[in-house]
Design a binder for these strands. Structure first.
Lengths: 206, 206, 206, 206
DNA sequence: ACCTAAGCGAGACGGTACGTCTCGTCTTGCG
DNA sequence: CGCAAGACGAGACGTACCGTCTCGCTTAGGT
C-alpha cells in the first residue's frame, strides 16, 4: 500500500495508476459493486479524485481496466475431444469467477454496461473477441472432423459463453459438474458429426 | 393522467400504484436505467416519495414490479416441431424486448441484481420460473418422441434463455433470423432423437 | 391509558381530548419540544390525527391548551410587604417551572410563538393577562401606600415577569434566592414610597 | 450575487460562506423563521447542501453565525445620567431590532435555543456577555456615585435586557418612548443613591 | 325503531425538509 | 506539469412530519 506517494515531476506516475487499480479491485471485492465508487477508490488508494479522472473517464472505464488487469489463465485444453475441452473451459472459467475477484468484477462490468454506453461498447468488443477465441476450440474440432463442416464455430462459442454468463449473473457459478457436462453435451452433440452415436444417456444406460 | 389524486382512506390507492408504475416505466424508457431514480419517478408520477417507499422497499423492487406489470405475450407456439417452436419463442422474445419497454426494463433489472441482493433473489426466482415454463416446450417435444428421453428439458430451456439474455445484455437483440435459427438448431439437434438425420447443412450444400 | 376509545356519537368525546392533552404533555416532557409533533402525540394517545386537528388547529394551539390545562397554583401571597410578595411569586413560579412540565411547555410555547402567529397572538394575550394579574400585587401595595401613586402596576409586573421569562428561556430557573431577592429589591425600591429608606445594602454595611 | 461560484482548491471558499450567510439572512427576512430551512438557504445561495453542512453543523449554528455577522452598533452613550443612558440603549436596541433583520434573527435564535442545546449554549454565553457589557453602563454610574455601592451592575443589566427580550419575543418592540423611559426609571431609581428625590411623577403632578 | 349526523381510529395521500452520500469539476501548494 | 487533498454545485438517497382526505365503525338524538 503505497503511502506518501508523491508526484514524480511533470509526468504521469505509474505507481499511482497501479495503486488505483489495486484499490479499485479491493473495494469491489470487499464492498461489492454497490459500494464501488470513485470516491471509495480514491480514498482507499490515497489518491486524489482528479488523478483517477485524468486516466480513466469514469467508473466504467476503471472497471474495464480492473477487469483487463486480471491475468486470465482460463484453460484452453486440447484433449482431442470437444466436449471435454468445452467442459474444462467452463469449469476453469467458473472456478476463476468463483475463487478470484474476476467474477465480481465481470458482474459489475456487465451491470455497468447496461447504463453506460462506453462500458457497453467495451463489453461488446471484449465479448466478441472471447467468442472468436473460444470458437477456436470448436474450429479445431471441426478441422479434425469432429464437428460438421457447416457449423459456425463462433456461434457455438456464443452458446457456451452465454450459458456461463447467465450462470454468473444469476449466482449459479457453483453449478455441479454433471449439469455443466450435460449442457456442454447438448451443444456438442448438436454440432457433432458422429451421427450414429446415441449420446448423453445422461443417467447411464446399463 | 390522474391529477389531484388523493388518499382513498386508510388503505392503498391503486391509482397511485398504477401511476407510479407507469411513471417508472416512462422514466426508464426516456432516460434509461442511469436516469432512473425514485425521485424522478415520484416527480413524474406527481407522487410523494414516501408513497413509493410505502409500497416498494426500493429501486430494485420497483423495477421488478414494473417488469412484472408488463403483460408478457411471448408466443409459446406448438407447431409439432421443437426447433420451430423455440425459434418462434426467441423471435417473439427479441421482438418484445426490442419494440416495448420490456427489454430496457429487464436489462435494468439484471444490472440492479448485480448490486442488490433482493433484486438478485427476485431475478433468480423469476428466471427459474421461466426456465421451467420454457422447458415445457421441450417436454412436449419429448412426450411426442422428438427429444431423447434422458434430456433435461429445463436445462435445454436454460441454454436457450441464456442465449437470449446475453444477446439482450450485449445489444444484439436485432440478431438476424438465420443466426437465431441456427443457434436453436444446434441445441435441438443436440437433444434430438432423430439420429439418422443430417441436420443443419446451414448454407445448404447443393 | 384509555384503550379502545371509540366515538360516543355525534359529539366530541372528552376522553379523547383528555388523552390527547395528556399524551402531548408526556411527549413534550420525554422528548422535548424538538420531539413534539402531532404524529407523536397521535401515536402516544392512540388517536387519529384528524381528531387532533378537529379540536386544535395546529401545534401551537395544542401547545397552548396543554399549558392552560396545567393547574397553576402559583403563590400570590399577601404578606403586607410587596418585596416579599414578589419574591415569593418568583420563587413559586421558578419552582413550578423547574419541578413540573410547565417550564418545558412554556418554553415550547414561546418558541412556537416566534414562528406561528396564532401562538404569538395567544401568548401575547396570555402574557397581558398575567401582567394585569401580577400587577394586582403591586396595586395592592399601592393602595396601602407602600408604592408611589403614579406608578403603573402593570408595568412593574412586566419587569418582574420579563425577568422570570428570560431566566426560563436561558436556562437559569435554578437561580439562587439571594439573587432573585436582590432583583426584586431593585424594582421594588424603585417604585417605593419610603424615600428615606436606604434599602438593600446587599452585602451588608455593618 | 456570485454566479458560477466554484471551488478555490482544498480549502474553504469565503465567497460561498458569505453567500450562504447572506442567503440565510434574506430567507429569514422574507419567509420568517418558519420558512427558514437549510434547503431554502442552499437554493437561495445556489449552494449545495453539503457545503452548508461542511461549515455549520445545522440550523442552529447557521442561525447563530447569521446573528453574529450582523454588525451591532447599539448605542452605548455616556451622558452622565444612567437613566438617560439606559433609555437610549433600549431605544437603540429596539430600533435595530425593528428596522434591521437583527430582531427577526434574534427571535429565531431564541426559539431555536428552546429545542437545540447547542443553540441554547451559544445563546446563554452570548447573553452573559451582553449582560456584562451593558452592566458597564451601570458600573460607570456607580463609579461616579450615581448608583449605590452594593448594587450588582450585571444584575441591573439583566433586568433591562430581560425587559427588552420579552418585548421582542411578544411583539412589543414598537413600545412608546414614555413607557420605556418609565420602566427604566423604576429600575434606576431602585438602585439610585439620591434618596431624597421623589422621582417619576409619571403622569405629572400639577 | 329507524335514520342521519358527527366523532372516532386508522392510515394513505402529495409534499417538504432533513442530513448523508457520491458525482465530476475545480483550484490550490508541494515536488 | 503531475500529484494528494479536498471544497464546490448538484442532486439522489431513505426517513420524519406536515395537514388533508377517505374509510368503516360507533353512538346519540331527532323523527
Amino acid at each position: 500500500m503505497a503511502v506518501g506517494r508523491k508526484s514524480i515531476g511533470a509526468r504521469r506516475n505509474p505507481d499511482s495508476a497501479e495503486a488505483i487499480l489495486e484499490a479499485a479491485e479491493a473495494v469491489l471485492l470487499e464492498n461489492g459493486y454497490s459500494g464501488f465508487s470513485i470516491e471509495a477508490v480514491a480514498r482507499r488508494a490515497r489518491a486524489g479524485k482528479p488523478t483517477i479522472y485524468r486516466w480513466w473517464p469514469g467508473k466504467a472505464a476503471l472497471l474495464l481496466a480492473v477487469y483487463q488487469r486480471q491475468k486470465r489463465d482460463v484453460v484452453y485444453s486440447d484433449s482431442g475431444d470437444l466436449e471435454e475441452d468445452l467442459f474444462r473451459f467452463l469449469k476453469s472459467l467458473f472456478h476463476q469467477w468463483h475463487d478470484t475477484p474476476a467474477g465480481e468484477i465481470f458482474r459489475s462490468l456487465v451491470a455497468e454496461a447496461q447504463s453506460d454506453s462506453d462500458a457497453a461498447k467495451a463489453l461488446a468488443e471484449y465479448a466478441a473477441g472471447r467468442r472468436v477465441h473460444t470458437g477456436q476450440l470448436v474450429a479445431r474440432a471441426q478441422a479434425r472432423g469432429e464437428v460438421r463442416p457447416g457449423v459456425d464455430a463462433t456461434q457455438v462459442a456464443d452458446l457456451v459463453a452465454s450459458y456461463a454468463w447467465v450462470h454468473l449473473l444469476t449466482g449459479r457459478i457453483d453449478e455441479n459438474d454433471e449439469t455443466i457436462r450435460r449442457a456442454v453435451g447438448y451443444i456438442v452433440s448438436g454440432v457433432s458429426n458422429r451421427e450414429t452415436e446415441a449420446p448423453d444417456q445422461t443417467h447411464g444406460s446399463p
